[in-house]
Design a protein around this nucleic acid. Structure first.
Lengths: 230, 230
DNA sequence: CCAGCCCCTGACAGTCGCTGACAATTGACA
DNA sequence: TGTCAATTGTCAGCGACTGTCAGGGGCTGG
Protein backbone atom coordinates (compact mmCIF):
# COMPACT_ATOMS: atom_id res chain seq x y z
CA UNK A 1 0.00 0.00 0.00
CA UNK A 2 2.34 2.70 1.22
CA UNK A 3 5.91 2.06 0.37
CA UNK A 4 8.82 2.27 2.75
CA UNK A 5 9.86 5.57 1.24
CA UNK A 6 6.44 7.07 1.86
CA UNK A 7 6.37 5.92 5.48
CA UNK A 8 9.85 7.22 6.10
CA UNK A 9 8.88 10.62 4.81
CA UNK A 10 5.80 10.70 6.99
CA UNK A 11 7.88 9.79 10.02
CA UNK A 12 10.41 12.52 9.31
CA UNK A 13 7.62 14.99 8.82
CA UNK A 14 5.91 14.08 12.07
CA UNK A 15 9.20 14.11 13.93
CA UNK A 16 9.94 17.60 12.65
CA UNK A 17 6.50 18.77 13.72
CA UNK A 18 6.89 17.32 17.18
CA UNK A 19 10.42 18.59 17.72
CA UNK A 20 9.53 22.04 16.47
CA UNK A 21 6.46 22.36 18.67
CA UNK A 22 8.30 21.16 21.73
CA UNK A 23 11.13 23.61 21.17
CA UNK A 24 8.80 26.48 20.35
CA UNK A 25 6.75 25.96 23.49
CA UNK A 26 9.76 25.31 25.74
CA UNK A 27 12.23 27.93 24.56
CA UNK A 28 10.14 30.30 22.47
CA UNK A 29 9.82 30.64 18.74
CA UNK A 30 12.56 33.17 18.09
CA UNK A 31 15.05 31.39 20.32
CA UNK A 32 14.51 28.18 18.38
CA UNK A 33 16.68 28.00 15.29
CA UNK A 34 15.84 25.78 12.36
CA UNK A 35 19.22 24.14 12.81
CA UNK A 36 18.23 23.07 16.28
CA UNK A 37 14.99 21.51 15.08
CA UNK A 38 16.79 19.69 12.30
CA UNK A 39 19.52 18.53 14.65
CA UNK A 40 17.01 17.01 17.03
CA UNK A 41 15.47 14.98 14.22
CA UNK A 42 18.93 14.29 12.82
CA UNK A 43 18.37 15.66 9.38
CA UNK A 44 20.09 18.54 7.68
CA UNK A 45 18.67 22.05 7.73
CA UNK A 46 18.19 21.74 4.00
CA UNK A 47 15.92 18.77 4.51
CA UNK A 48 13.81 20.72 6.95
CA UNK A 49 13.12 23.26 4.25
CA UNK A 50 12.15 20.50 1.86
CA UNK A 51 9.34 19.53 4.22
CA UNK A 52 8.28 22.99 5.28
CA UNK A 53 8.63 26.08 3.18
CA UNK A 54 9.47 28.16 6.21
CA UNK A 55 9.95 28.05 9.93
CA UNK A 56 6.54 29.68 10.12
CA UNK A 57 4.84 26.89 8.23
CA UNK A 58 5.76 24.21 10.72
CA UNK A 59 4.41 26.37 13.53
CA UNK A 60 1.05 26.77 11.84
CA UNK A 61 0.62 23.25 10.53
CA UNK A 62 -2.21 22.38 12.89
CA UNK A 63 -3.79 25.75 12.50
CA UNK A 64 -3.98 24.86 8.84
CA UNK A 65 -5.89 21.72 9.69
CA UNK A 66 -8.41 23.60 11.81
CA UNK A 67 -8.90 26.15 9.09
CA UNK A 68 -9.45 23.57 6.41
CA UNK A 69 -12.06 21.77 8.47
CA UNK A 70 -13.72 25.07 9.34
CA UNK A 71 -14.10 26.16 5.74
CA UNK A 72 -15.33 22.74 4.69
CA UNK A 73 -17.85 22.75 7.52
CA UNK A 74 -19.27 26.01 6.29
CA UNK A 75 -19.88 24.59 2.85
CA UNK A 76 -21.63 21.57 4.33
CA UNK A 77 -24.02 23.53 6.51
CA UNK A 78 -27.67 23.55 5.42
CA UNK A 79 -28.42 26.38 3.06
CA UNK A 80 -31.41 27.63 5.01
CA UNK A 81 -29.38 28.21 8.12
CA UNK A 82 -28.96 31.85 9.10
CA UNK A 83 -25.57 33.19 8.01
CA UNK A 84 -24.46 33.92 11.51
CA UNK A 85 -25.40 30.46 12.78
CA UNK A 86 -23.44 28.92 9.94
CA UNK A 87 -20.24 30.48 11.20
CA UNK A 88 -20.87 29.59 14.80
CA UNK A 89 -21.72 25.97 14.14
CA UNK A 90 -18.91 25.46 11.66
CA UNK A 91 -16.44 26.73 14.22
CA UNK A 92 -17.70 24.27 16.77
CA UNK A 93 -17.37 21.41 14.32
CA UNK A 94 -13.86 22.39 13.36
CA UNK A 95 -12.59 22.52 16.92
CA UNK A 96 -13.85 19.14 17.94
CA UNK A 97 -12.93 17.43 14.70
CA UNK A 98 -9.39 18.74 14.85
CA UNK A 99 -8.57 17.73 18.39
CA UNK A 100 -8.37 14.07 17.40
CA UNK A 101 -6.28 14.66 14.31
CA UNK A 102 -3.71 16.59 16.28
CA UNK A 103 -3.23 13.88 18.89
CA UNK A 104 -1.94 11.52 16.21
CA UNK A 105 1.18 13.61 15.82
CA UNK A 106 1.71 15.77 18.90
CA UNK A 107 0.04 15.88 22.31
CA UNK A 108 -3.03 18.10 22.19
CA UNK A 109 -1.58 19.98 25.14
CA UNK A 110 1.31 21.07 22.98
CA UNK A 111 -0.97 22.37 20.30
CA UNK A 112 -3.01 24.39 22.76
CA UNK A 113 0.14 25.82 24.30
CA UNK A 114 1.21 26.79 20.83
CA UNK A 115 -1.74 29.17 20.70
CA UNK A 116 -0.27 31.02 23.62
CA UNK A 117 3.14 31.09 21.97
CA UNK A 118 1.61 32.48 18.81
CA UNK A 119 -0.24 35.18 20.69
CA UNK A 120 2.83 36.31 22.61
CA UNK A 121 5.38 36.18 19.79
CA UNK A 122 5.18 39.26 17.58
CA UNK A 123 6.45 37.62 14.43
CA UNK A 124 4.12 34.65 14.86
CA UNK A 125 1.17 36.84 15.75
CA UNK A 126 1.71 38.81 12.58
CA UNK A 127 1.75 35.67 10.50
CA UNK A 128 -1.30 34.37 12.31
CA UNK A 129 -3.28 37.51 11.59
CA UNK A 130 -2.32 37.50 7.95
CA UNK A 131 -3.38 33.91 7.61
CA UNK A 132 -6.65 34.61 9.35
CA UNK A 133 -7.20 37.53 7.04
CA UNK A 134 -6.76 35.28 4.04
CA UNK A 135 -9.22 32.87 5.58
CA UNK A 136 -11.74 35.67 6.03
CA UNK A 137 -11.58 36.22 2.31
CA UNK A 138 -12.39 32.60 1.61
CA UNK A 139 -15.17 32.55 4.16
CA UNK A 140 -16.83 35.76 3.07
CA UNK A 141 -16.73 34.58 -0.52
CA UNK A 142 -18.45 31.39 0.53
CA UNK A 143 -21.00 33.26 2.63
CA UNK A 144 -21.75 35.53 -0.30
CA UNK A 145 -22.18 32.55 -2.56
CA UNK A 146 -24.57 30.71 -0.29
CA UNK A 147 -26.75 33.78 0.26
CA UNK A 148 -26.72 34.68 -3.40
CA UNK A 149 -25.26 38.10 -2.81
CA UNK A 150 -22.72 39.72 -5.08
CA UNK A 151 -19.59 40.04 -2.95
CA UNK A 152 -18.41 42.97 -4.99
CA UNK A 153 -21.55 44.99 -4.59
CA UNK A 154 -22.94 44.05 -1.22
CA UNK A 155 -20.58 44.48 1.69
CA UNK A 156 -22.74 42.53 4.10
CA UNK A 157 -20.99 39.19 3.80
CA UNK A 158 -17.66 40.84 4.35
CA UNK A 159 -18.98 42.90 7.20
CA UNK A 160 -20.48 39.91 8.96
CA UNK A 161 -17.38 37.80 8.55
CA UNK A 162 -15.09 40.64 9.54
CA UNK A 163 -17.10 41.37 12.65
CA UNK A 164 -17.38 37.69 13.56
CA UNK A 165 -13.71 36.96 13.05
CA UNK A 166 -12.68 40.13 14.83
CA UNK A 167 -14.69 39.17 17.88
CA UNK A 168 -13.46 35.57 17.71
CA UNK A 169 -9.93 36.84 17.69
CA UNK A 170 -10.56 38.97 20.74
CA UNK A 171 -11.98 35.92 22.50
CA UNK A 172 -9.11 33.71 21.41
CA UNK A 173 -6.62 36.25 22.58
CA UNK A 174 -8.12 36.35 26.03
CA UNK A 175 -8.34 32.59 26.22
CA UNK A 176 -4.78 31.96 25.15
CA UNK A 177 -3.46 34.38 27.73
CA UNK A 178 -5.59 32.98 30.53
CA UNK A 179 -4.81 30.16 32.91
CA UNK A 180 -7.09 27.51 31.43
CA UNK A 181 -5.74 26.29 28.11
CA UNK A 182 -8.44 23.74 27.43
CA UNK A 183 -10.74 23.31 24.48
CA UNK A 184 -13.72 23.79 26.74
CA UNK A 185 -12.39 27.08 28.03
CA UNK A 186 -11.82 28.24 24.47
CA UNK A 187 -15.38 27.45 23.49
CA UNK A 188 -16.64 29.12 26.62
CA UNK A 189 -14.82 32.34 25.80
CA UNK A 190 -15.97 32.22 22.22
CA UNK A 191 -19.59 31.80 23.25
CA UNK A 192 -19.48 34.54 25.82
CA UNK A 193 -17.89 37.02 23.45
CA UNK A 194 -20.03 36.16 20.52
CA UNK A 195 -23.11 36.51 22.66
CA UNK A 196 -22.62 40.23 22.60
CA UNK A 197 -22.44 40.31 18.86
CA UNK A 198 -25.30 37.99 18.04
CA UNK A 199 -28.22 40.20 19.02
CA UNK A 200 -26.54 43.05 17.25
CA UNK A 201 -25.98 41.33 13.96
CA UNK A 202 -29.39 39.75 13.79
CA UNK A 203 -30.06 36.18 12.88
CA UNK A 204 -31.53 36.62 9.45
CA UNK A 205 -30.88 38.83 6.49
CA UNK A 206 -34.02 38.10 4.53
CA UNK A 207 -32.83 35.91 1.77
CA UNK A 208 -33.99 38.19 -1.03
CA UNK A 209 -31.16 40.63 -1.24
CA UNK A 210 -32.29 43.05 -3.88
CA UNK A 211 -35.84 43.75 -2.90
CA UNK A 212 -35.89 47.35 -1.75
CA UNK A 213 -38.84 46.74 0.51
CA UNK A 214 -39.75 50.04 2.10
CA UNK A 215 -41.87 48.36 4.74
CA UNK A 216 -40.26 50.36 7.46
CA UNK A 217 -42.99 50.85 9.92
CA UNK A 218 -41.84 52.76 12.92
CA UNK A 219 -40.31 49.56 14.05
CA UNK A 220 -39.21 48.44 17.44
CA UNK A 221 -38.34 51.08 19.92
CA UNK A 222 -35.71 49.49 22.03
CA UNK A 223 -35.41 46.28 20.07
CA UNK A 224 -32.88 45.34 17.43
CA UNK A 225 -32.37 47.75 14.69
CA UNK A 226 -33.47 46.40 11.33
CA UNK A 227 -30.63 44.95 9.38
CA UNK A 228 -29.23 47.17 6.71
CA UNK A 229 -31.09 47.13 3.44
CA UNK A 230 -33.30 44.39 4.69
CA UNK B 1 17.59 76.32 18.24
CA UNK B 2 18.49 72.95 16.77
CA UNK B 3 22.15 72.28 16.33
CA UNK B 4 23.73 71.30 13.04
CA UNK B 5 24.06 67.72 14.19
CA UNK B 6 20.37 67.57 14.89
CA UNK B 7 19.42 68.96 11.51
CA UNK B 8 21.78 66.62 9.73
CA UNK B 9 20.20 63.67 11.41
CA UNK B 10 16.73 64.86 10.51
CA UNK B 11 17.78 65.23 6.90
CA UNK B 12 19.23 61.75 6.77
CA UNK B 13 16.12 60.37 8.36
CA UNK B 14 13.82 62.11 5.89
CA UNK B 15 16.00 61.08 2.98
CA UNK B 16 15.85 57.45 4.09
CA UNK B 17 12.07 57.66 4.38
CA UNK B 18 11.71 59.16 0.94
CA UNK B 19 14.11 56.79 -0.76
CA UNK B 20 12.56 53.78 0.92
CA UNK B 21 9.02 54.72 -0.01
CA UNK B 22 9.95 55.45 -3.61
CA UNK B 23 11.73 52.13 -3.95
CA UNK B 24 8.98 50.20 -2.19
CA UNK B 25 6.28 51.65 -4.43
CA UNK B 26 8.32 51.39 -7.62
CA UNK B 27 9.95 47.99 -7.25
CA UNK B 28 8.02 46.36 -4.43
CA UNK B 29 8.95 45.83 -0.82
CA UNK B 30 10.65 42.47 -1.06
CA UNK B 31 12.66 43.43 -4.13
CA UNK B 32 14.02 46.47 -2.33
CA UNK B 33 17.06 45.63 -0.25
CA UNK B 34 18.15 47.75 2.67
CA UNK B 35 21.50 48.13 0.94
CA UNK B 36 19.78 49.77 -2.00
CA UNK B 37 17.96 52.25 0.21
CA UNK B 38 21.16 53.08 2.05
CA UNK B 39 23.09 53.43 -1.19
CA UNK B 40 20.61 55.91 -2.58
CA UNK B 41 20.99 58.10 0.48
CA UNK B 42 24.74 57.44 0.49
CA UNK B 43 24.98 56.03 3.97
CA UNK B 44 26.05 52.60 5.10
CA UNK B 45 23.58 49.83 5.76
CA UNK B 46 24.61 49.99 9.40
CA UNK B 47 23.51 53.60 9.56
CA UNK B 48 20.10 52.73 8.17
CA UNK B 49 19.56 50.38 11.08
CA UNK B 50 20.54 53.11 13.50
CA UNK B 51 17.64 55.20 12.26
CA UNK B 52 15.10 52.43 11.85
CA UNK B 53 15.06 49.25 13.84
CA UNK B 54 13.96 47.25 10.83
CA UNK B 55 13.09 47.50 7.18
CA UNK B 56 9.51 47.21 8.32
CA UNK B 57 9.71 50.26 10.55
CA UNK B 58 10.56 52.64 7.75
CA UNK B 59 7.64 51.31 5.73
CA UNK B 60 5.17 51.99 8.52
CA UNK B 61 6.50 55.32 9.70
CA UNK B 62 3.55 57.30 8.42
CA UNK B 63 1.11 54.67 9.55
CA UNK B 64 2.53 55.31 12.98
CA UNK B 65 1.69 58.98 12.65
CA UNK B 66 -1.90 58.26 11.66
CA UNK B 67 -2.30 55.86 14.52
CA UNK B 68 -0.94 58.28 17.06
CA UNK B 69 -3.28 61.01 15.93
CA UNK B 70 -6.20 58.57 15.90
CA UNK B 71 -5.66 57.46 19.47
CA UNK B 72 -5.17 61.00 20.66
CA UNK B 73 -8.33 62.07 18.89
CA UNK B 74 -10.30 59.45 20.75
CA UNK B 75 -9.12 60.74 24.08
CA UNK B 76 -10.08 64.26 23.12
CA UNK B 77 -13.62 63.43 22.03
CA UNK B 78 -16.40 64.63 24.31
CA UNK B 79 -17.26 62.12 26.97
CA UNK B 80 -20.97 62.16 26.26
CA UNK B 81 -20.48 61.08 22.67
CA UNK B 82 -21.76 57.60 21.88
CA UNK B 83 -18.89 55.06 21.80
CA UNK B 84 -19.41 54.24 18.19
CA UNK B 85 -19.44 57.88 17.10
CA UNK B 86 -16.22 58.44 18.98
CA UNK B 87 -14.42 55.93 16.77
CA UNK B 88 -15.91 57.24 13.57
CA UNK B 89 -15.16 60.87 14.27
CA UNK B 90 -11.67 60.20 15.56
CA UNK B 91 -10.87 58.33 12.39
CA UNK B 92 -12.00 61.26 10.31
CA UNK B 93 -9.85 63.63 12.31
CA UNK B 94 -6.81 61.42 12.04
CA UNK B 95 -6.97 61.09 8.29
CA UNK B 96 -7.22 64.78 7.56
CA UNK B 97 -4.69 65.81 10.19
CA UNK B 98 -2.14 63.37 8.90
CA UNK B 99 -2.28 64.28 5.25
CA UNK B 100 -0.48 67.54 5.91
CA UNK B 101 2.20 66.05 8.11
CA UNK B 102 3.07 63.48 5.48
CA UNK B 103 3.55 66.03 2.73
CA UNK B 104 6.44 67.58 4.63
CA UNK B 105 8.54 64.50 4.02
CA UNK B 106 7.16 62.55 1.08
CA UNK B 107 4.47 63.28 -1.52
CA UNK B 108 1.07 62.28 -0.18
CA UNK B 109 0.62 60.23 -3.34
CA UNK B 110 3.50 58.04 -2.29
CA UNK B 111 2.00 57.42 1.11
CA UNK B 112 -1.35 56.43 -0.36
CA UNK B 113 0.33 54.13 -2.84
CA UNK B 114 2.15 52.60 0.09
CA UNK B 115 -1.21 51.39 1.38
CA UNK B 116 -1.62 49.35 -1.75
CA UNK B 117 1.89 47.99 -1.43
CA UNK B 118 1.18 46.98 2.14
CA UNK B 119 -2.03 45.24 1.20
CA UNK B 120 -0.45 43.26 -1.60
CA UNK B 121 2.80 42.28 0.12
CA UNK B 122 2.33 39.31 2.44
CA UNK B 123 5.11 40.17 4.84
CA UNK B 124 3.98 43.79 5.06
CA UNK B 125 0.35 42.84 5.42
CA UNK B 126 1.22 40.58 8.31
CA UNK B 127 3.11 43.36 10.04
CA UNK B 128 0.27 45.75 9.34
CA UNK B 129 -2.29 43.47 10.91
CA UNK B 130 -0.17 42.90 13.98
CA UNK B 131 0.27 46.61 14.43
CA UNK B 132 -3.42 47.20 14.01
CA UNK B 133 -4.11 44.50 16.55
CA UNK B 134 -1.89 46.25 19.05
CA UNK B 135 -3.73 49.47 18.33
CA UNK B 136 -7.04 47.77 18.96
CA UNK B 137 -5.81 46.95 22.43
CA UNK B 138 -5.00 50.56 23.12
CA UNK B 139 -8.29 51.75 21.71
CA UNK B 140 -10.48 49.27 23.52
CA UNK B 141 -8.73 50.10 26.78
CA UNK B 142 -9.46 53.75 26.19
CA UNK B 143 -13.07 53.04 25.24
CA UNK B 144 -13.50 51.00 28.39
CA UNK B 145 -12.03 53.78 30.46
CA UNK B 146 -14.25 56.49 29.05
CA UNK B 147 -17.41 54.45 29.48
CA UNK B 148 -16.42 53.39 32.96
CA UNK B 149 -16.59 49.69 32.13
CA UNK B 150 -14.16 47.13 33.45
CA UNK B 151 -12.30 45.90 30.38
CA UNK B 152 -11.59 42.58 32.04
CA UNK B 153 -15.18 41.84 32.93
CA UNK B 154 -17.24 43.48 30.23
CA UNK B 155 -16.36 42.39 26.70
CA UNK B 156 -18.38 45.13 25.07
CA UNK B 157 -15.56 47.61 24.53
CA UNK B 158 -13.43 44.92 22.94
CA UNK B 159 -16.31 43.66 20.88
CA UNK B 160 -17.18 47.09 19.58
CA UNK B 161 -13.59 47.93 18.73
CA UNK B 162 -12.94 44.53 17.19
CA UNK B 163 -16.03 44.77 15.04
CA UNK B 164 -15.31 48.35 14.06
CA UNK B 165 -11.67 47.71 13.20
CA UNK B 166 -12.53 44.53 11.39
CA UNK B 167 -14.97 46.32 9.18
CA UNK B 168 -12.60 49.23 8.66
CA UNK B 169 -9.97 46.81 7.53
CA UNK B 170 -12.33 45.25 5.04
CA UNK B 171 -13.10 48.72 3.72
CA UNK B 172 -9.44 49.72 3.58
CA UNK B 173 -8.62 46.56 1.77
CA UNK B 174 -11.13 47.24 -0.90
CA UNK B 175 -10.08 50.85 -1.23
CA UNK B 176 -6.38 50.12 -1.53
CA UNK B 177 -7.00 47.59 -4.27
CA UNK B 178 -9.33 49.85 -6.19
CA UNK B 179 -8.48 52.38 -8.86
CA UNK B 180 -8.98 55.56 -6.84
CA UNK B 181 -6.24 55.95 -4.25
CA UNK B 182 -7.46 59.25 -2.83
CA UNK B 183 -8.29 60.23 0.72
CA UNK B 184 -11.84 61.00 -0.34
CA UNK B 185 -12.30 57.55 -1.80
CA UNK B 186 -10.95 56.02 1.37
CA UNK B 187 -13.42 57.93 3.49
CA UNK B 188 -16.21 57.05 1.11
CA UNK B 189 -15.48 53.34 1.42
CA UNK B 190 -15.17 53.57 5.16
CA UNK B 191 -18.51 55.32 5.46
CA UNK B 192 -20.28 52.90 3.21
CA UNK B 193 -18.96 49.85 4.99
CA UNK B 194 -19.47 51.20 8.45
CA UNK B 195 -23.01 52.13 7.55
CA UNK B 196 -23.92 48.50 7.65
CA UNK B 197 -22.49 48.06 11.07
CA UNK B 198 -23.89 51.14 12.72
CA UNK B 199 -27.53 50.16 12.94
CA UNK B 200 -26.46 46.75 14.12
CA UNK B 201 -24.24 47.89 16.92
CA UNK B 202 -26.62 50.53 18.10
CA UNK B 203 -25.64 54.00 19.07
CA UNK B 204 -25.95 53.76 22.80
CA UNK B 205 -25.13 51.16 25.38
CA UNK B 206 -27.21 52.69 28.10
CA UNK B 207 -24.25 52.65 30.39
CA UNK B 208 -24.33 56.27 31.32
CA UNK B 209 -27.06 58.84 31.40
CA UNK B 210 -26.24 61.05 28.52
CA UNK B 211 -27.93 63.43 26.15
CA UNK B 212 -30.11 61.46 23.80
CA UNK B 213 -28.92 62.33 20.36
CA UNK B 214 -31.78 63.91 18.44
CA UNK B 215 -30.56 63.14 14.96
CA UNK B 216 -30.55 59.42 15.45
CA UNK B 217 -32.87 58.65 12.59
CA UNK B 218 -33.34 55.17 11.28
CA UNK B 219 -30.61 53.62 9.25
CA UNK B 220 -30.16 53.78 5.53
CA UNK B 221 -32.79 52.12 3.43
CA UNK B 222 -30.88 50.86 0.50
CA UNK B 223 -27.54 52.27 -0.31
CA UNK B 224 -25.11 50.76 -2.73
CA UNK B 225 -21.41 50.81 -2.60
CA UNK B 226 -19.90 53.91 -4.04
CA UNK B 227 -17.91 53.24 -7.15
CA UNK B 228 -14.84 55.37 -6.66
CA UNK B 229 -13.85 57.18 -9.80
CA UNK B 230 -16.55 55.25 -11.49
C1' DC C 1 40.86 79.40 18.78
C1' DC C 2 41.72 75.10 20.38
C1' DA C 3 41.71 70.80 22.97
C1' DG C 4 39.02 67.43 24.54
C1' DC C 5 34.75 64.94 24.70
C1' DC C 6 31.18 62.46 22.78
C1' DC C 7 28.03 61.40 19.22
C1' DC C 8 27.64 59.56 14.80
C1' DT C 9 29.30 56.82 11.18
C1' DG C 10 31.59 53.18 8.33
C1' DA C 11 33.85 48.82 7.96
C1' DC C 12 34.02 44.17 9.32
C1' DA C 13 32.59 39.89 10.99
C1' DG C 14 29.07 36.92 12.35
C1' DT C 15 24.09 34.86 13.08
C1' DC C 16 19.85 33.23 11.20
C1' DG C 17 16.28 32.29 7.68
C1' DC C 18 16.21 30.65 3.24
C1' DT C 19 17.58 29.02 -1.71
C1' DG C 20 20.05 27.00 -5.75
C1' DA C 21 23.28 23.58 -7.40
C1' DC C 22 25.61 19.32 -7.31
C1' DA C 23 26.79 14.88 -5.81
C1' DA C 24 25.89 10.84 -3.03
C1' DT C 25 22.60 7.71 -1.18
C1' DT C 26 18.57 4.90 -1.09
C1' DG C 27 14.06 2.94 -2.20
C1' DA C 28 11.32 1.20 -6.30
C1' DC C 29 10.79 -1.68 -10.12
C1' DA C 30 11.97 -4.37 -14.10
C1' DT D 1 21.07 -7.33 -10.08
C1' DG D 2 21.03 -3.19 -12.45
C1' DT D 3 18.74 1.02 -13.69
C1' DC D 4 15.88 5.01 -12.67
C1' DA D 5 14.04 8.34 -9.79
C1' DA D 6 13.33 10.24 -5.42
C1' DT D 7 15.51 11.81 -1.23
C1' DT D 8 19.20 13.69 1.13
C1' DG D 9 23.63 16.16 2.67
C1' DT D 10 27.07 19.49 1.55
C1' DC D 11 28.39 23.81 0.04
C1' DA D 12 28.06 28.42 -1.45
C1' DG D 13 25.49 32.48 -1.28
C1' DC D 14 21.81 36.26 -0.46
C1' DG D 15 19.39 39.41 2.63
C1' DA D 16 17.96 41.09 7.22
C1' DC D 17 20.02 42.24 11.28
C1' DT D 18 23.57 42.90 15.30
C1' DG D 19 27.98 43.59 18.01
C1' DT D 20 32.32 45.67 17.85
C1' DC D 21 35.86 48.81 16.97
C1' DA D 22 38.15 52.62 15.00
C1' DG D 23 37.86 57.25 12.94
C1' DG D 24 35.72 61.80 11.86
C1' DG D 25 32.69 65.26 12.89
C1' DG D 26 29.95 68.41 15.91
C1' DC D 27 29.86 70.34 20.40
C1' DT D 28 31.70 72.52 24.72
C1' DG D 29 34.87 74.69 28.16
C1' DG D 30 38.94 77.06 28.55
Amino acid sequence: MTGLRERKKQRTRDALLLAAHQLFVDHGYDATTVDRIADRVEVSQRTFFRYFASKEEVAFHFHDVVEEVFVRSIVERPLDEAPYDVLRNALDTAWTATAEAVEDVVPLRLHLMMWHTVETTPSLLAAHLRRQSAMEDRVSAEMAARTGLDPDLDPRPRVLVAAFCGVMRAAGRRWSCGPDLSVEAARSFADSYVEHLAPALGRDWGVQPRVPSPASSAGPTKERMPRPAG
